[in-house]
Design a binder for these strands. Sequence first.
DNA 1: CTCATTAATCGTATATTGACGATTGACGAT
DNA 2: ATCGTCAATCGTCAATATACGATTAATGAG
Lengths: 108, 108
Amino acid sequence: MPASQKTASKSAPKAARPSRSVDTDMARLAKAIGHPARVAILKLLIARGECVCGAIVDELPLAQATVSQHLKVLKEAGLVQGEIDGPRVCYCVNPAGVRRLKELIGGL
Amino acid sequence: MPASQKTASKSAPKAARPSRSVDTDMARLAKAIGHPARVAILKLLIARGECVCGAIVDELPLAQATVSQHLKVLKEAGLVQGEIDGPRVCYCVNPAGVRRLKELIGGL
DNA sequence: CTCATTAATCGTATATTGACGATTGACGAT
DNA sequence: ATCGTCAATCGTCAATATACGATTAATGAG
């Protein structure tokens, strides 16, 4: 995604508009929840407040490695955050990220 | 997607929680706007009310074929609709689709 | 009818995603 | 120090997404 994306955006003659980066931002967030498993994870975290990684794995019909990858995607998009708690990792929603997502979508 | 995924979603036609299909629905819609070009297209249609395909192509730094493909994705997700108008195709937002997207995201 | 225009589709190349098992690193308990 | 547990990461494979030029189908103009 990086190279072609960037090129496409930059090569646009009317690149001056700020809407371009907003579009990218919105796409980034939307893409993060563009998979059923990630929607499920996000909802789970919202419902439970916070959640140890293993608990999430138990709830989903996916391998641990796969869940970890999905969590990484959500984390990189700024929708969740995880803090290390001993040998486990405790995940929770990033309210700012979710708020921004709602703002952007709601503002359509 | 491999067997496990499919099995997971399909193996519960309607018996299990409804949240599963809602998750899928939300992911489907989010995925549709999970690309900057499609966000730009959707916004363009919202701003203009309706728009001939060619006009969209002119606004974006993408080839006609590519824009057409993005439009197809948006159409399949139920976010836009297009009606044939002579030799051109006039696209417009599907209010129901956008409303549903907003509901689902807003309800998080 | 022929031509130009418009947009969908085809074919294709490349990039990214999604899934998993295996491995690694970090930590607490013994 | 060793062990078991937990979660991230690696390596890999199949599937999907993205982009484009070329082609096709549909339509209106002449």
